[in-house]
């Protein structure tokens, strides 16, 4: 190979090394979430609202990774029902075209006090509605299945309030440095890497012990 070819090869390999380094460095460690730490009266909360330990999840109903975490978070909500307040916030990603519509369905359910029931339905049936042109009809079906009043649901799901709410949550997530879903904050501290129930539980146990 000529010198120029070797030079081109060298530049490409060096650039790759730089990119690999950046890719690893950008993953970052735990960071403070600021506002994300604070539970508001409007938040959707599962578990004990008065608990000293607050787990805030920024999530997207159409995100496959969030659906993968769903059973894990659900089990935590059951096992730590007295010690932890679990907060769900919308973080609809742009590449998920139906994420906002799903958030609106959940908000419409929230108006009838069934946010978490709809939340569960959306994650459990993600494969059914995600990418389906009839998602709105499927959402209406879930609304009926969890016992919502159909007329009110239809009015609420089309109102702008749900969309605004999703947008507000998204903005608070951006302010807290969220750039992926799901992102969890434990008492305001971003937690990275709970890849199993036991890892998650260990973090919660630690937080509970500290706040006793």
């Amino acid at each position: 190979m000529s010198k120029s070819s070797i030079a081109i090869l060298g530049v490409v390999v060096l650039a790759a090394a730089g990119l690999v380094y950046l890719g690893i460095a950008a993953d970052g460690g735990p960071a403070a979430g600021g506002q994300a730490a604070i539970m508001t009266a409007e938040d959707h909360v599962k578990g004990n609202r008065e608990a000293m330990v607050v787990l805030v999840e920024y999530s997207d109903f159409q995100c496959p990774a969030c659906a993968a975490y769903y059973p894990l978070v659900k089990k935590i909500a059951e096992d730590y029902a007295n010690d932890v307040a679990i907060v769900y916030r919308h973080f609809p990603l742009q590449q998920h075209r139906q994420a906002v519509a799903a958030a609106q369905a959940a908000e419409a359910a929230a108006n009838q006090g069934r946010f978490w029931e709809m939340h569960d339905m959306l994650f459990e049936h993600q494969g059914e509605w995600s990418g389906n042109a009839n998602a709105a009809e499927l959402f209406a079906g879930y609304a009926a299945a969890i016992g919502l009043d159909g007329d009110q649901y239809r009015r609420d799901v089309e109102a702008s309030a749900g969309r605004d709410r999703a947008q507000e949550d998204f903005q608070s997530g951006r302010a807290a440095g969220v750039n992926a879903t799901p992102t969890f904050f434990l008492n305001g501290q971003r937690i990275v890497g709970p890849q199993s129930y036991s890892e998650f539980a260990a973090l919660l146990d630690e937080a509970i012990a500290q706040n006793r």
């Binding site: 790759a16 993953d27 990774a65 993968a68 992926a180 879903t181 992102t183 990275v192 890849q195």
Partner: peptide, 25 residues
């Protein structure tokens, strides 16, 4: 090559699964 090197680095450094603003899922 750069793209694949980045993905390979991401693969080996792990991290929990997530959907991100930039990378997709």
């Amino acid at each position: 090559f750069l793209d694949a090197a980045y993905l390979a680095a991401k693969y080996f450094t792990g991290g929990p699964i997530a959907c991100s603003v930039l990378d997709g899922c």
